[in-house]
């Protein structure tokens, strides 16, 4: 399991670069992760990330895009605006969580 240093934090990542230990994440790391994929976080991004983290803690799996939309009240279209092209994977990456496994 590779270790990479992000903004002074040493974090464990998988072969694609997703964090493998959610406990190594904090909100300041989110800014660093976001910046690496070309995003600048706004309060709306952060609201999504907080939901993802809370839902992952509660259920042990990363929520899908649909679940993130229902849970945050942010419409799917707006989530595509916040995390363009591949929203479910991008939000999981920035939240320091594994990719979602669910199909829908």
């Amino acid at each position: 399991m590779p270790v990479t240093t992000l903004d002074g934090h040493a974090v464990h990542v998988d072969a694609e670069g997703f964090l493998t230990d959610p406990a190594e994440w904090d909100e300041s790391l989110a800014d660093v992760l976001a910046e690496r994929i070309g995003l600048t976080l706004t309060d709306e991004h952060r609201a999504v990330l907080r939901f993802l983290r809370a839902d992952f803690t509660a259920r042990g799996e990363t929520p899908t895009l649909r679940r993130a939309s229902l849970g945050t009240g942010i419409p799917v279209k707006a989530l595509f605006g916040l995390f363009p092209q591949k929203p479910a994977k991008k939000m999981a990456y920035v939240a320091g969580l594994p990719k979602p496994h669910g199909c829908v």
Binding site: T4, A15, E16, F18, K86, Y93
Partner: peptide
């Protein structure tokens, strides 16, 4: 767990 320090940062290739 084997850990390897990597100099190059691994970033997912989303686009």
């Amino acid at each position: 767990m084997n850990t390897t320090d990597v100099a190059a940062q691994i970033v997912p290739r989303f686009d």
